[in-house]
Design a protein around this nucleic acid. Structure first.
Length: 486
RNA sequence: GGUAUCGUGGCCGAGUGGCUAGGCAGAGGUCUGCAAAACCUCCCACAGCGGUUCGACUCCGCUCGAUACCUCCA
């Protein structure tokens, strides 16, 4: 059940059986954040998607090296800026060192990813730490004859590349159409063709992020870091390259071209792209300025949010959609996720209290198979979750005495939760740690309430319950006595 | 304009040529001092129009609509 994992490969537009190049090792590279802004809901999607992939591959026994970059240099604002990069622009606005900004926002990124229970990748390289390697790759491409220098900048010759290879094979584009249909941009004079892209850009005098190179003091082009760092840490040929769908073109297309020339062969076996999160049907993104930061989700401080949403609610919300589908944000959908998650996690507590029977009604074994089938079908987490809710139904029915489960199935069910809910989906119970003072107070209060109930003094017992509810403490009377939760 | 993807019930969101997705919300019931939780039952669906087929929500075509990329974007 563990050996026929299907992965949707953007290159072939089909699901392919996953066969690593050098089993049991798997190399995975994912495009990480550009650290010049606070992480928003959009950043959570690829992080959680590839966290799921990382966790599941490890569960299957693969030894995964997962590399996710931090982009702290080199992304051009636009061509009109003639080489001013984003981080430098913001730095000037705030009168800070560019690296100070990069440091701040990468720290924020790590902090929020940790809150979302996203595991740290094996390596998180920074573009700024790999300038030497990038210069070397530019040399290799120049030597191969697929790049040219112009006024201290170096450009990749896409037209020449396309005569030998297919520029556009990932995104389904045809170069002639691109040339015909792409609108003309300013500041393209240096390029032989405007489909060419920069490998190295000469820095303007006011540009403060710059490095020496054989061609000029400047900075690397926007696509180069991923080709360089994946090559350095995963080799010329590796298994999975992931990222957001919006990076498909031109970023990943250009990566393919660069790596093909620099390495002499295609670098990536499986291209995997997560879809976008939408808000009112539109992509949530920086350019549209309609994004909600993770900080705002966790605190509720945004006019679009009806309440705060916990990190696990966000994680569960994202996992309830398959990664290749768009996922539409709304308060209603988040609240549904919050309740569903609560139901799933509280069933795990119930599971710990179940008493096995001799007879057995349950179908836990087939449930386990269904869970693996779901994950093996291109990481279909919504189907997995639907199966887990079948487990919830079984647990509650047994708890109600309406179904029986034997000891073996009970153990299997516990193992199933550990594996799929906690290990693979990476969910966790966020219940606040109760300090002993609160616990003692609650025990006292609830025992007073119990006595009132025994005396049929329901006015008092309800008063206590209502007062606690005001404090967001919910009291429920079960047959085993009262339980409370926040 | 080009390329790609999609259009499922009140909301989010799976899937399949004939058989229940799931969660949330709603209705009824069991239980309960009440409430909550839980369980049971029910409700609402596959954009439109043609075609293929014994049969299509699922395949094909067209129409309408939506989104993404083509400029940095997860």
């Amino acid at each position: 059940m563990k050996n026929k994992l299907l992965i949707y490969n953007t290159l072939s537009r089909t699901k392919e059986t996953f066969e690593p190049i050098n089993p049991p090792f798997v190399g995975m590279y994912v495009c990480g954040p550009t650290v010049y802004g606070d992480p928003h809901l959009g950043h959570a999607r690829p992080a959680i998607t590839f966290d799921l992939v990382f966790r599941y591959l490890k569960h299957l026994g693969f030894r995964v090296r997962y590399v996710r970059n931090i982009t702290d240099v080199g992304h051009l604002e636009n061509d009109q800026d003639e080489g001013e990069d984003k981080i430098a622009k913001k730095a000037r606005l705030e009168q800070l060192e560019p690296m100070e900004i990069a440091q701040y926002y990468s720290d924020r990124y790590f902090q929020f990813m940790e809150a979302l229970n996203v595991e740290r990748p094996s390596i998180e390289p920074r573009a700024s730490g790999h300038i030497i390697e990038q210069i070397q790759m530019i040399r290799d491409i120049l030597d191969a004859g697929f790049a040219y220098e112009m006024n201290g900048s170096v450009y990749f010759d896409v037209v020449k590349y396309n005569e030998n290879f297919h520029y556009g094979k990932l995104s389904g584009r045809v170069l002639d159409d691109l040339i015909t249909n792409t609108r003309t941009l300013e500041g393209q004079d240096e390029k032989r063709n405007f489909v060419d892209f920069a490998l190295w850009k000469k820095a303007q005098p006011e540009h403060i992020m710059r490095w020496p190179s054989p061609w000029s003091d400047g900075f690397p082009g926007w696509h180069l870091e991923c080709s360089t760092m994946s090559k350095k840490y995963l080799g010329d040929h590796f298994d999975i390259h992931g990222g957001g769908l919006d990076l498909l073109f031109p970023h990943h297309e250009s990566e393919i071209a660069q790596s093909r020339i620099a390495n002499g062969s295609d670098a990536v076996k499986y291209w995997v792209h997560n879809n976008m999160i939408t808000i009112n049907g539109q992509k949530m993104g920086k350019s549209l300025n309609n994004f909600i930061t993770l900080d705002e989700f966790f605190t509720g401080k945004n006019p679009a949010l009806a309440q705060a949403y916990s990190p696990m609610t966000i994680r569960f919300f994202i996992l309830q959609a398959q990664y290749r589908s768009t996922l539409d944000f709304s308060n209603e959908a988040l609240q549904a996720a919050e309740k569903g998650l609560k139901k799933l996690l509280s069933s795990y507590e119930t599971l710990g209290k179940l008493v096995p029977s001799v007879t057995n009604h349950s179908v836990v074994q087939s449930l386990e198979k269904s869970c693996y089938d779901a994950m093996n079908d291109d990481f279909n987490s919504p189907i997995l979750i639907a199966n887990l809710f079948e487990g919830v139904r079984i647990i509650n029915s047994v708890n109600d005495g309406k179904e029986m489960i034997n000891a073996a199935d009970l153990e299997l069910l516990k193992a199933l939760y550990k594996t799929f809910v906690f290990e693979i989906l990476g969910l966790k119970d966020e219940k606040q740690e109760q300090d002993s003072l609160v616990g003692g107070l609650m025990t006292t209060i609830l025992s007073i309430r119990q006595r009132a109930k025994e005396n049929k003094d329901f006015a008092t017992s309800d008063e206590i319950r209502n007062a606690l509810q005001e404090l967001k403490i919910t009291v429920k009377d079960t047959k085993d006595g009262p339980v409370w939760s926040t």
